[in-house]
Amino acid sequence: MSKVTYVEHDGTATEIDLQDGWTLMQGATMNGIDGIEGECGGSCSCATCHCYVEEDKLDLLPPMGEIEDEMLECVVSERRPNSRLSCQIKMSPALDGIVVELPEAQS
């Protein structure tokens, strides 16, 4: 178990314990975080689990794949340098305490 904090667009912050190996998208949808939709269930094909990752954790994430990069071109809210799809981020002890901000809209 490691901790992740989701900060919704209105500033509401929710911290949850997430099993290592599970994705930040799964953690959000299982815990009623409205700012993540995850329509495709985590197969990196819908771009509705967009999040902004805090800068100092970015380098700890697995590198972005080509499909994720393409999908991020389709997000509804602004794509920023720290944009990632949360279904592609698996929790691990190294990411304990990670904070992600959620965009205004996913779809």
């Binding site: 939709e37 495709c40 094909s45 509705t48």
Partner: peptide, 10 residues
């Protein structure tokens, strides 16, 4: 799935 998903997203 990526091929198909975009036709059926919200």
């Amino acid at each position: 799935r990526a091929l198909i998903q975009k036709a059926v997203t919200k």
